[in-house]
């Protein structure tokens, strides 16, 4: 994750701080996804290392403080509340990522079979795609609202596919014949649900961006 000094933060404007924040949160999401991929590959040391990085919040807290200071003093009244809400929504993603990482660090599992692993990797790939897309959409708001709207549409489409994969995974999990260790079952169920929770928030954020586009774009 990109480290920035307090002096650099002070020099940044609202736009730059928002971009920096969303970049950091996106990187955090990618670390989280990579960490779970390590778990799938049973590389537990790497998994723990990655998820611990996700939990670390120092840089984000400093960016948030710098942003809040700037927005409070901003004279752009008509977009001020929306800018603040946008930033807070990015922060929500960060909080969910942290919560997810904390939960996943409680235990380490061996996945039941290759098919399950492949399906988890597939929804992780989708999660990676929508996280990158969301960061791109946030960064595009400033320069091209229509493009941001289109990117958000892609995010929503990808999340729809993930939802189908989620039901398949849960179905598979509940239909294993083996007398399953309850901790492993719970962990895997939580893993699927947390991935979807993060995806749902990204989708809801995308819808908020689309609302902003509708609000600010004027068509002749």
């Amino acid at each position: 994750m990109r480290e920035v000094s307090d002096d650099e933060l002070k020099k940044m404007n609202i736009n730059e701080l928002t971009h920096l924040f969303v970049e950091n949160i996106n990187e955090q999401n990618l670390k989280l996804i990579e960490g779970i991929e390590f778990l799938v590959d049973e590389k537990f040391e790497n998994f723990t290392q990655n998820l611990n990085l996700v939990i670390e919040t120092n840089t984000e807290v400093r960016i948030k403080k710098a942003f809040e200071f700037k927005i409070f003093k901003s004279k752009l009244m008509f977009s001020k509340a929306d800018r603040l809400k946008l930033f807070n929504k990015i922060n929500d993603i960060k909080n969910i990522g942290e919560f997810f990482a904390h939960k996943m660090l409680l235990y380490q599992v061996i996945f039941p079979d290759e098919e399950f692993k492949l399906q988890i990797l597939s929804i992780l790939k989708s999660l990676k795609t929508i996280s990158i897309d969301l960061a791109e959409a946030v960064k595009t708001i400033g320069s091209d609202l229509s493009k941001a709207h289109d990117i958000c549409e892609e995010v929503k489409e990808e999340r729809r596919k993930m939802r189908e994969a989620e039901w398949k995974l849960l179905d598979q999990l509940y239909n294993y014949d083996m007398d399953y260790l309850s901790k492993t079952f719970l962990y895997l169920k939580e893993l699927i649900e947390n991935i979807m929770m993060l995806a749902d928030h990204i989708k809801s954020f995308s819808e908020y961006i689309q609302f902003l586009v509708t609000k600010y774009l004027i068509f002749d």
Partner: peptide, 23 residues
């Protein structure tokens, strides 16, 4: 409003551009 929208406001693409013009 229609005149302003057709000749100017509808040509603004991003929020930064909108904010600058609203200044």
């Amino acid at each position: 409003f229609k005149l302003l929208a057709k000749t100017y406001l509808s040509k603004l693409k991003g929020l930064n551009q909108i904010e600058r013009s609203e200044k």
